[in-house]
Design a protein around this nucleic acid. Sequence first.
DNA 1: TATGAATGAGAATTCATTCAT
DNA 2: TATGAATGAATTCTCATTCAT
Lengths: 197, 197, 197, 197
Amino acid sequence: MVRYKKSEEKRKLLLHASFQALSKLGYDAVTLQTIADYAKVSKGVVHYYFDNKEAVLVDLLDWLTAKIYDKEAAAVSLQSTARGKMDAYLDSVFVSPEKNRDFYRVYLDFLARASRIPAYREINSRFYANCGSISREIMELGQREGVYDPGLSPADTAPVIRSIIDGCLIQWLMSENDELHGVYKGRCREAIERLLS
Amino acid sequence: MVRYKKSEEKRKLLLHASFQALSKLGYDAVTLQTIADYAKVSKGVVHYYFDNKEAVLVDLLDWLTAKIYDKEAAAVSLQSTARGKMDAYLDSVFVSPEKNRDFYRVYLDFLARASRIPAYREINSRFYANCGSISREIMELGQREGVYDPGLSPADTAPVIRSIIDGCLIQWLMSENDELHGVYKGRCREAIERLLS
Amino acid sequence: MVRYKKSEEKRKLLLHASFQALSKLGYDAVTLQTIADYAKVSKGVVHYYFDNKEAVLVDLLDWLTAKIYDKEAAAVSLQSTARGKMDAYLDSVFVSPEKNRDFYRVYLDFLARASRIPAYREINSRFYANCGSISREIMELGQREGVYDPGLSPADTAPVIRSIIDGCLIQWLMSENDELHGVYKGRCREAIERLLS
Amino acid sequence: MVRYKKSEEKRKLLLHASFQALSKLGYDAVTLQTIADYAKVSKGVVHYYFDNKEAVLVDLLDWLTAKIYDKEAAAVSLQSTARGKMDAYLDSVFVSPEKNRDFYRVYLDFLARASRIPAYREINSRFYANCGSISREIMELGQREGVYDPGLSPADTAPVIRSIIDGCLIQWLMSENDELHGVYKGRCREAIERLLS
DNA sequence: TATGAATGAGAATTCATTCAT
DNA sequence: TATGAATGAATTCTCATTCAT
């Protein structure tokens, strides 16, 4: 449809504004007016580019998880050894207190609704699958390299790796303590290392 | 006084109704009317027992996390060996698809808001601390028994154990597949076992 | 449902206010705020008594047409001869410029939407059927009395009588001339008389 | 000038599209975007040819009623006897279920607003006058021919004829039954015949 | 001439909260 | 204690109109 071509740039700009609004104010408090304010446009513009509020949020989650995955995949691909890749993966995930806070606040908001909103759930499944494939490939490489336990099933272990990552970052987020960011990153790294060796 | 007891009973009844409403409809969709309907009382009653909506929800989270922790602690205390206690802990956590779904849906709803609502965050911190103490005691016993790696720091490892549990249960919740409940439980158990040994 | 008992009186009051608002401002211009204003209550009250705007309007049309029919039927029943009943019917229909204007303005607004809104159409069909039965009974009595042509089919002629009435009152309404009210009434009466004799 | 012709053509095209949109969707649901869509032009074009939405609708009613009158007048002029003309008139009015539905839906939409929008009322008065003159001329001819009652006042009877026509077609429209179209036409014809004889 | 992006006023609806009974 | 009627702030969404290109 023509309806969708409407300057892809502006759509991105609105999604970016939505992300800022959500991370700053939270899902509950964000209105279309807020988003418009963050984007410095009028309220009507948001409705011009998206059918309704739900569409904005669905597109936001899609855009956001795709961006995160792309960054992670890119970081991993620059390394050649399993441990190098795993370190790159974790560096990419635990990027900084500020960015992790912004992303995980928003991500948790979506996750909390995903069990009731199929569109969110579907996008998250894709994200899980993508993250899983990163871990799986690193594991398989590590097993070929002889640094990871060859008895482990990558398909069964990859989800657990993401569980540790998400679990640690959620716990860190709840601590409200930026200095613990490094601590949680270290704990996460070591736990994964013990798990795979 | 009877007076107080009576109202305390009704308060519990309202919290229970709130939990049912939240797990069924989700945080966003629950209104005071909904809660009143679930409790089969009039809307005014909810305001009679709680100052406002926020107060209901804060009390609910408090009541809920305390209940969960009590169950876990009780289950663990029935066992005497570290591995027995850990199994009891995980059995208590991964209790059933139905109960896990109900609790984690509601818990995620609170977690998502906890980074913005201090009252929720505080209650969750207490919950984290309580859960942490369970793991820590099991670990310390296991180290004394010689079944767990004595080089591990219980204070640093306990949080990771809860991370794995929460991470796995969130992932399972997103899968919308009851049959995977056992699979995630198994993965979680093995990961913890590898981590501690 | 309990939902409907909520003081029938107030519901009537709101319907009456809606009628006033509609006849004064027209369907397009009437908002729920307007209705609330006319009823001297807050906007929320209208939503408390009716599920939505459509429900207000459906109930209004129902209430209005029932009221009109009741008046007509009551007036007719007071007379004993066919011509007496027909005169009473027309007197009841052509009641006064003010009342006819108020009713026909609102009625036309509904009629215009009835071809697209089934609820309106259904209510109007009931109104047509009721009005038809009045004419039919008068005709049958007149035929027995020997004052109306016995060769006419009451079932076929009754609808035409209402057509003449509605057609004349719409034309009068468009004339915006109160003094023509009597003229149109006379034309309508004579036409019906010629039709039936 | 070509310039003027061209735009005049487009204006007609827009009016035609407006008519289609109105008959299909109803006055309430028609937006300038809808009209533009039906005309397969951009929204801006509608504003280029008309000052505002109201202007489009006023012009549409004008164009529509003029077209209807022209057709009726043309049909009548082809006949030479009073009864022939009256039949031609009614054939022209009761043209077909489809066309009557399209026209009367739109016409009722305008009629309902005419009591509040002077521009509509004025155009409708002209339409009434034109239709009245058709009936009047037929009546006068019939009276000269000796087939219609010479005691009737054409000026007083002509409006009633249009009342019967409009009243019958509105009733038919409300019936939502194409097969009744012929029935109503027959009733209308007979009623007029009895009225005039 | 023509397009369609942008604006913002205005409408329906929801719901926490208040309060008279 | 308990009820539920009433309020009004806040939110989503629609659309006529304007205007730069």
